[in-house]
């Protein structure tokens, strides 16, 4: 990919294909109008608040607590998804069992099912009188209307991210490596934990970050099951909506700006992981 030819610096490599200017122009204009201008507008709006006012709003106790709940529950849910998502990917790639194709297709349900539908369904199931909630209620465990409910909703939403990043990598994995480990005297347990899983780490990490990033911003599936008690089960996106409904635009903007900065930081980290894993393992999960 040498972009410098005898002519020196070049914006693009010569190509016989037409339409570069036209499609690049259209892409840039559309991207700018739909994504860049609105996002920049939000940051400009929050900068007009002034530094002190911005931080006073952003560091308000209720806001901090909401951010903590959003990030904390998203982290726990992503962790649960790493365990079960990797297990699921493993089962789907390595084993044969009846109904496997349907199970495989089912994994994408959270991508297809509207979040509000998932929200009311999970609430009905995990409420103390619901099919699943009633099993836990006698044990004194309340799931719906507690932070635990938020975690359940975020596990639902984030699951396909982990499965779909780990699955293709697991498929590409060379069986010979496992055979080599076995001939060198490793038992199956050692082979899995010391040979296979380290190779999967970048994919798992990417899946974790994607599920985490999605969970932090998630709204529709959470608000029904969360209970939405300030300081206890109120997530940051909901607080933005509440501030907006109170016509408190500065506060809504400040919380949104903080969340965006954190999400973009996360996106940056994901890109670093992918670049690193491409160098280290030869693929970008």
């Amino acid at each position: 990919m040498t972009l410098t030819s005898s002519k020196g610096w070049q914006f693009r490599q010569p190509s016989v294909l037409p339409g570069f200017r036209w499609t690049l122009g259209f892409t840039l204009v559309w991207l700018t109008l739909i994504v860049l201008v609105p996002l920049t507008g939000l940051f400009l709006k929050s900068s007009t608040l002034g530094w002190d006012a911005f931080w006073t709003l952003a560091l308000e106790k209720r806001t901090l607590q909401a951010l903590k709940i959003s990030f904390g529950t998203a982290f726990l849910a992503a962790l649960a998804n790493v365990v079960f998502g990797t297990l699921l990917a493993w089962v789907l790639v390595r084993y044969r069992f009846p109904g496997k194709r349907i199970i495989d297709a089912m994994v994408d349900l959270p991508f297809a099912l509207p979040t509000a539908v998932a929200g009311i369904a999970l609430t009905t199931l995990y409420a103390s009188k619901g099919w699943i909630g009633s099993l836990f209620a006698p044990l004194g465990i309340k799931i719906a209307f507690t932070p635990l409910g938020i975690v359940i909703a975020l596990v639902f939403v984030g699951l396909p991210f982990v499965v779909r990043t780990v699955q293709p990598v697991l498929e590409e994995l060379d069986r010979e490596v496992e055979e080599a480990a076995a001939t060198l005297g490793a038992n199956r347990f050692q082979t899995i934990f010391r040979v296979l899983l380290p190779g999967l780490a970048p994919a798992v990490l990417t899946g974790f970050s994607l599920a985490f990033a999605r969970g932090v911003g998630e709204y529709g599936s959470v608000i029904f099951i969360a209970g939405n008690v300030p300081f206890k089960s109120e997530i940051a996106p909901l607080l933005i909506v509440i501030k907006l409904e109170e016509f408190n635009y500065p506060a809504a903007t400040a919380i949104a700006a903080v969340m965006l900065l954190l999400s973009f930081g996360l996106l940056f980290v994901i890109n670093l992981i992918q670049a690193w894993s491409r160098r280290r393992y030869g693929y970008g999960a």
Binding site: E218, T253, A256, S263
Partner: peptide, 15 residues
Amino acid sequence: FSVSPVISGLVFVML
């Protein structure tokens, strides 16, 4: 993809 849906709506309210 990495913007919360709520913020995706908010940016247009701000504009």
